[in-house]
Amino acid sequence: MWNSRFDYLYVAPAILVMLIVIGYPIYYTIELSFFNTPASLALSAKQFNGLDNYATILTSPIFWKVTWQTVVWTVVSTFFAFVLGLGAALALHREFVGRGFLRALLLIPWVVSAVAASYVWKWLYHSDFGAISAMLSGLGLIDRPINFIDNTSTSLYALIVVNVWKEFSFAMIMLMAGLQTVPDTLLRAAQVDGASPWQRFWHVTFPHLSGVSMVTLLLLAVQNFNSFIIPWIMTGGGPAGSSDIWITHIYQLAFGRQRWGVASAYAVILFIVMMVLGYFYVRALTKGDDARAGA
């Protein structure tokens, strides 16, 4: 009994800090979401408007356009980052000369600062002087620069490519760790039984990766829902809002337009979505513990 009381005492400072730096901002954001905060009034003079901010957001066609773009951004980025990460993990799981070097090389995108990477990619994509267009032009494949990020049809996908490049290494690391748990004996037994490489992967390796895959996918999804740096630096959500996602839209409403009330309501909606994803993440993480506890 006394021991558990001391346990609470030990974690109390951490909980207090969390309440101050996480709990209060969440509370204040939820409170602000019920107020109108026009540019002509100080925050202390904010006007209560009930659920108006939520109604304004949910009835706006811009919100649904941005939501669709957020879904595309998150799903496509997560899928391709995972698939590329899985491919790289499988390739690097084998012994071969230069494996360590290649692993280090593939980790570079994850290690590089997102801000620096965004600026570099912005210049690679540049619609007038971009390195990619210059290279393709030099090879005689194009006669005018490709418009990657100044085009409403391609801007979001151009950003997704950068995002996948930036985060596939993370999936690779996670899955490489998962591959260590696949028993060699099972793989050898399957080989002796005449299973093809694909059959060995699908029936032996992949089932052992399901737990880590679920965690990786959820972490990538959460990370992508919250992505800000790449779209903000490279396009600022443009052109004409074609690469706006929830986070960039919320940021612009709050800090570009000083519309704290609406931005807070928007953030609360995003918070709810993130909590749902977080619930599944925690469930995936504790699944193994529950199973062990049950056993």
């Binding site: 912005k122 540049h126 619609s127 007038d128 620069p145 100044d150 600022g236 443009g238």
Partner: peptide
């Protein structure tokens, strides 16, 4: 921008 294309295409960013 759109007709003459006489300004930088990258003007939007």
């Amino acid at each position: 921008y759109a007709v003459d294309k006489s300004v930088p295409t990258s003007a939007l960013t």
